[in-house]
Design a protein around this nucleic acid. Structure first.
Length: 317
DNA sequence: GTCGAATGGAAAG
DNA sequence: TTTCCCTTCGACT
């Protein structure tokens, strides 16, 4: 259940551990067996990612991976090695004389020093440069990539009447942003999630983009999503640190029903763009400008429905 | 044990 | 807009 930072960490783990020399490939689960046989023993030239898509290059063959909701990777080192300290890449406990298959391992890549298992991905397929290009065509700029062009996101966003919270989840607008980053970035920006894209000011977009870059880069470095500013964190406020398997300190994500860290208002939740959205109604007020846009949108919608109803009546008669 | 949610997205309708 | 798929994990019988 990863957002873009996890894929970027995966890319460096693949490249660092297996790059530049032959590696064995297999599919203990079987669903990637034919493809694994094709690249078995070949050299991994590079691993790169765009948003949540990872591409491992073996000459002209490319393994395309997307973790989807359930995908995970686990890196194990024969020599103990470093503790990578992240949920998706962890150290094998005990003596690694054996290399047990834990769970439904779609793809295992290994050499004498390490093995890396991939389970539950939405996509794990063998493709080529053309296939990769087709994926990239559907993706907007990725805040984690140095070559990202935020202007492309702005052009999409500021013409859209859709809520900013829906646009943030649209991978063709922002690649790599997921449900946590959308909720947290909106909170930090003080933006109501229902604010239509067209109502966002240029400067607000630029701040949002920069903040996403910061939050996601931090997550790549640490393997955690921490979005709470120092002045609001447990050390500064005395409140208890958040404890769950994700571990990060956040303002609103999955905190519905609990008091906002800043103002104490109860954090709300609803479903938007098929996912659970979380926000603080006080810290993320709907501005007059946004309210006006929303009202106009509502009027237009009502008129459209009236027209539609009249047209239907006319047809029936 | 069983069920539903989960940091996702594509295909069908 | 709904349905389906991926697999794991925690909450609930």
């Amino acid at each position: 259940m990863p957002e873009g930072h996890v894929t970027h960490r995966m890319a460096s783990a693949y490249e660092r551990t297996f790059g530049g020399r032959p590696a064995r490939s297999s599919s203990p689960q079987g669903r990637f067996a034919e493809e694994a046989a094709i690249i078995d023993g070949r050299v991994l030239d590079s691993a790169e990612c765009f948003g949540k898509h990872l591409f491992c290059h073996f000459g002209h063959d490319i393994v395309h991976i997307h973790l989807g909701m359930a995908g995970k990777t686990r890196l194990n080192r024969a020599d103990g090695g470093e503790d990578l300290g992240e949920e998706v890449v962890q150290l094998a406990p005990g003596d690694p004389g054996e290399r047990p298959v834990l769970g439904a391992v779609r793809w295992r890549i290994e050499n004498d020093e390490a093995w890396l298992d991939l389970t539950g991905p939405a996509i794990c397929e063998l493709t080529d440069a053309e296939g990769q290009a087709a994926v990239l065509e559907r993706l907007g700029p990725d805040p984690l990539r140095a070559d990202a062009d935020p202007e492309r996101a702005w052009q999409r966003l500021h013409r859209s009447k859709l809520p900013i919270a829906a646009l943030l989840m649209d991978q063709s607008v922002f690649a790599g942003v997921g449900n946590i980053f959308r909720a947290e970035a909106l909170y930090r920006a003080g933006l109501d999630p229902m604010l239509p894209g067209v109502a966002l000011k240029r400067v607000e977009f630029e701040q949002l983009w920069d903040d996403l870059c910061d939050l996601m880069a931090y997550a790549v470095d640490t393997g955690r999503i921490d979005t709470v500013r120092p002045e609001d964190d447990p050390a500064a406020t005395g409140r208890a640190a958040r404890v769950d398997r994700h571990g990060g300190e956040v303002y609103v994500y999955r905190r519905d029903g609990q008091p906002c860290h800043v103002c104490g208002t109860t954090v709300k939740t609803t479903t938007l763009a098929t996912r659970n959205l979380f926000w603080c109604p006080t810290c993320q007020p709907l501005s007059r400008r946004a309210a006006a846009v929303a009202a106009r949108r509502k009027q237009t919608e009502a008129r459209r429905k009236q027209t539609e109803a009249r047209r239907k009546q006319g047809v029936e008669r």
